[in-house]
Design a protein around this nucleic acid. Structure first.
Lengths: 124, 124
DNA sequence: GACGTTCTACTACAGATGTAGTATGCGTCG
DNA sequence: CGACGCATACTACATCTGTAGTAGAACGTC
């Protein structure tokens, strides 16, 4: 299972997010699920979903009335992994990244401790 | 000082990385500084630098012979911040992100402790 | 001062991306 | 069963990106 990586654009990733959240949805539902000030047109979302379909990131599941339902065909995790890896590559590793988070106040010492604790537990 | 955000593409970011590393450099030096299997053509790098210049991310410093020198006009930190923020937005916060790093083995418990220690110290 | 070398400026261009319109089809409600 | 409305399929298009070629200017070397 070759698991070729699919490259997603920003907007495509946004749409995937909605689909991961909903599990399955129509174009209309995806559009409604997008969190933005000024929503893209219905057909815009439709186009993105079509492209995602071509890329193999999404597949049709069923039809209800004349509306199609779509679901993710790739996992959230695989996409996150790629994005995280890219960022790590840029900043020079996870240590610097986390340090940056702490430094900029996006992660507290308490957070760190909580994660540590959870990690220890799950490792057992 | 409005500090408008400059949006960089992947390649542009790569070029900025070289510039941040070198401090100041000619097109030729940037090209040499790029870490890739198959290097982009000289003029390709030149074009990217020109675009960066237009975006205000880079500025000319001096001329030596007939070659121009360029330096970053925006900080590494500001760019990282933006990228990190975007990722955080997607994955839902720094806690999940770090958890993901630990889980995927990209960050060890020892790393966590080291960061914690450093953070504690620098905070004083 | 003529030449070859090396830069810069400008131009080109295909493919990706965001954005959306149009035409046409299928369903449903009276 | 006919009309209205929403959905889909297809088309369009301006920008952005990555990529690089070409023309002409500036240097350094004989």
């Amino acid at each position: 299972m070759a698991r070729e990586q699919i490259d997603l654009t920003k907007f495509e990733t946004e749409v995937m997010s909605v689909l991961w959240r909903l599990g399955e949805a129509t174009v209309r539902e995806v559009q409604d699920g997008i969190d933005r000030d000024d929503l893209p047109a219905y057909t815009t979302v439709q186009t993105i979903i079509q492209r995602l379909e071509q890329k193999g990131a999404v597949r049709r599941t069923r039809k209800e009335g004349n509306a199609l339902f779509f679901e993710p065909a790739i996992t959230r995790k695989s996409v996150y992994r790629r994005l995280v890896d890219e960022l790590l590559d840029l900043v020079g590793g996870s240590q610097p990244l986390v340090a940056h988070l702490v430094e900029s106040g996006k992660l507290s010492l308490d957070d760190l401790r909580a994660i540590e604790k959870a990690a220890k537990k799950s490792r057992k």
